[in-house]
Amino acid sequence: MYGKFWGAAALGLALASAGWAEEQAELIGDVNAGAEVFEYCMGCHEVGQGAENGIGPHLNGIFGRTAGTIEGFKYSKGLIREGRLGMTWQLENLDAYLENPKALVSDTRMSFDGLEEPKERADVLAYLRQFSDNPQNIPEAAPTARKHEVELPPEILAIVGDPEYGEYLSTECTTCHQTDGEYDGIPAIIAWAEDDFVVAMHAYKRKIRPHPVMQMMAGRLSDEEIAALAAYFGGLE
């Protein structure tokens, strides 16, 4: 049955070892190095046996969990929103979140600048991965192979947006998103770092972020148009 979904090699791997979950975790990064990276997180987050919510929610079972859903923890509106829209934590979006929390969830309360180094993110995710089981252990579930939320080639991030064009394009956004930064049920999008804006829009364009209106709006924007919007909104205060 596994073979229906996976190649023979994956099938072999799945059957080869009782410690399969560990092996998958190893594929993500170095668990021991990740334990050290996790020291950045420990001020707010607990993980492992007996872990409880602190300043941040505990991280047991984070893989495969719907965002913003641990009972008894008071989440930001942003995480609750993403959860309602169906975002579950997977390797891709956890990686993006750790790289820059506000680029993925603009109004998260997690005040963490992000881990710039891909290896550090991989390692800490490998470490956290040990404390989650389903669905990542199941071959039919989302693949555990390492993947970025959106792998943007440097040339896309390097595009210099034309703010005048961005201002025109922005008129499509401002029917819903208020330019004074008010939040009334639809997030504010002004004054974002341009790279964050670009990554977020490409994540919608590729349907990695779940919102159907945003997938549709971003879906027809070219790389240049996304850069133009990022330049325009980035300049608003």
């Binding site: 401002t174 008010e182 009334d184 049920g185 639809i186």
Partner: peptide, 12 residues
């Protein structure tokens, strides 16, 4: 979201 849209479009 529709409530947010109402605030957005009327300020637009």
């Amino acid at each position: 979201e529709s409530v947010g849209w109402y605030a957005g479009i009327t300020s637009d």
